[in-house]
Amino acid sequence: MGILEVKDVNKRFGGLQALGDVNLSVQENTVHAIIGPNGAGKSTLLNCLVGKLIPDTGSVLFDGQSVLGRTPHEINQMGISRVFQTPEIFGDLTVMENMMIPCFARRDGAFRLHAIEAVENEAELRDQAEAMLDDVNMLDKRNMHSASMSRGDKRRLEMAMCLVQNPKLLLLDEPTAGMARADTNNTIDLLKEIKEKRDITIAIIEHDMHVVFSLADRITVLAQGTPLVEDTPENIKGHPKVQEAYLGESH
């Protein structure tokens, strides 16, 4: 039984069957990639995992517990962190403040009225945040206004914000979309490093085959809302069904 079990999930938007009988099992401590052409339902599936959408039928179990009907912050507290396609950070805050917020969320839960003690005095959390910033080579940018950073830096910051929470499952939504080749390679190295350092399960949605084949242990190919195949990268590469889905039947 995997850490994430998606069973018979269906989702309709009006007349469009966005997801049809999706079954997916992500094993603990693996990198599981979900690929597929545009409109295959990758993002819809991801949104069903984090509480943004509720599937019409089917079940999603994380760590043996259902995530359906829970709000995004409850799901995060269960141990799922999500990186967005366009980096979502706190643009008005400094890099360090951006890092402190997930640290507080992990320690204090979804709400705590700690209105009198100063953020400055939370030495333990600050050390955690600084160590994580160091891991992603951003310690020198700690006092920067985060909105003024480059997109690549924002992406790294967002990744660090998710990782500092020590999630059991990290969901990446096209983490290299719109990046230059060098930045993409940096991201791949960063993710490999993370994978070596800690026990973490990563589910990644990606268009870039280079990224997918350098990272993934398992790959699920999604087409028109339904999984076509699930296999190792080696087997996926030469799979006729995959080529068909990507290139179209006429080729």
């Binding site: 507290q77 706190f90 008005d92 917020i101 997930p102 969320a105 204090d108 700690h114 953020v119 400055e120």
Partner: peptide
């Protein structure tokens, strides 16, 4: 203003979506 609570309030102004997905209500 200087407390974690104040920081969360500024985070709400900045990006509620991120706050939700960071496990905060």
């Amino acid at each position: 203003f200087r407390s974690p609570f104040g920081m969360m309030l500024r985070a709400i102004k900045s990006n509620q979506q991120r706050l939700n997905y960071t496990g905060l209500n």
